[in-house]
């Protein structure tokens, strides 16, 4: 009997579970360190530094890169975000409408503008619209153009996010509001949409980060010196100095905004989770 009962016998052959786990983790560290070392030794740091990290060139970018380029980038992004948000709410409500043609129109809008590269939309807004309607002027010149282009791109994404947010608000909320005598529109505005926005704050902020980067496409619209944003500014200076340092500095400026923004999103995410339930 004793020799048939193997249930409590320790495994004799091979490695134990713990030994195997330790070995696997060790192997992963070795691969990681090897990859980092290979990268560090194979790159030509001298030439890289020469091309991307020239301190005198970086210095001459200030303060314009902040006071002009970064300011413009933020301005383009925010104006595009506002247009996109308003348009996005309208499209989301159309998508949820009981009127068929509204739903179809919203669906078509979303499919088209979500599917097209942002660059094409910039060209369409910057070149196509002025050709088709020569008398129409964008309010605010380039700023208006960018707001419309970025707004059209982001509205398609935001509409889907907002729709999901509205649908995530429990049905009982609308019923309670209607029972109290709210009209459907008022219930939507006072009760449902505020709760929907609480739910979708993190994805909306992500959209803001995406827009921040897409604002670099302004350079295809042709801008004056005062209207340049980070990418155009860095790119221009890179060609006049024949050195890529300005590009690196411009890139760092993007991170200066996006990294804190990501931090804020994570904070909001954990906070809104506490608040809702």
């Amino acid at each position: 009997m004793a020799d048939t009962d193997t249930r409590i016998q320790p495994r004799k052959k091979g490695l134990t579970r713990r030994q195997r786990r330790r070995l696997s983790r060790g192997a992963q560290y070795v691969v990681f360190v090897a990859a980092v070392l290979a990268f560090a030794f194979s790159a030509d740091w001298g030439r890289l530094k020469n091309q991307f990290a020239q301190l005198p060139i970086a210095e001459q970018m200030f303060p314009d890169i902040i006071t002009l380029a970064l300011k413009n980038t933020v301005l383009y992004t925010l104006s595009g975000f506002v247009v996109g948000l308003v348009l996005g709410i309208v499209v989301a409500l159309m998508r949820l409408s009981s009127v068929g043609p509204y739903r179809w129109l919203a669906g078509i809008y979303i499919e088209i503008f979500r599917g097209l590269p942002a660059l094409l939309i910039f060209i369409f807004v910057g070149v196509g619209v002025p050709l088709a309607f020569p008398d129409v002027q964008y309010p605010g010149g380039t700023y208006g153009k960018v707001a419309v282009a970025l707004g059209l791109v982001s509205a398609a994404y935001m509409a889907e996010t907002i729709r999901a947010g509205i649908q995530a608000v429990p049905k009982g909320q609308m019923e309670a509001a209607r029972s109290l005598g709210f009209s459907p529109a008022r219930a939507m505005i006072s009760i449902v949409i505020p709760q929907a926005f609480r739910i979708i704050l993190p994805p909306l902020t992500n959209e803001l980060v995406l827009l921040f980067k897409d604002s670099s496409l302004v350079l295809f619209l042709g801008v004056t010196l005062e209207e340049r944003e980070l990418s155009k500014f860095g790119n221009d200076l890179a060609s006049t100095t024949a050195n890529s340092t300005p590009i690196l500095v411009a890139g760092l400026c993007y991170l200066l905004v996006t990294i804190p923004l990501g931090f804020v999103v994570r904070r909001m995410e954990s906070k809104s989770q506490e608040a809702i339930r």
């Binding site: 909320q173 029972s179 709210f182 008022r186 006072s190 709760q195 809702i276």
Partner: peptide
């Protein structure tokens, strides 16, 4: 007509007083 639901359906984004005052202000 007042209606009371099984799941209460209070408005979670408003505090208790606001739950009571918002309908009065918006509707009445």
């Amino acid at each position: 007509i007042g209606m009371v639901f099984q799941q209460f359906n209070l408005f979670p984004h408003l505090d208790v007083t606001e739950n009571l005052t918002l309908p009065q202000r918006r509707v009445l």
